[in-house]
Amino acid sequence: MEELILELKKQIIEALNLEEITPDDIDTNAPLFVEGLGLDSIDALELIVLMEKNYGIKLTDPGKSKEIFKSVATMAEYIQANRTK
């Protein structure tokens, strides 16, 4: 799980062009949106693409997004349970 969390942080930094942030700067349990990294709606869409492209996960239920993208930890848990690649 630790390995997946680190990999995910690196992918988020690259996908969202967070150039002044390192994986160590991202609190695994901190909120990704509003507080924490302060991501916006375009970033949310980019994370959905990241999940599909890198882990083969297609999010079909928008209602679940809030829980999945709560933090890096919740994203990693969802990926581990649902990844197809």
Binding site: A15, L16, N17, I42, D43, L45, E46, E52, K53
Partner: peptide, 9 residues
């Protein structure tokens, strides 16, 4: 085919 929202905008 993974359209990038960040580039699209």
């Amino acid at each position: 085919y993974y359209p990038s929202p960040a580039l699209f905008v």
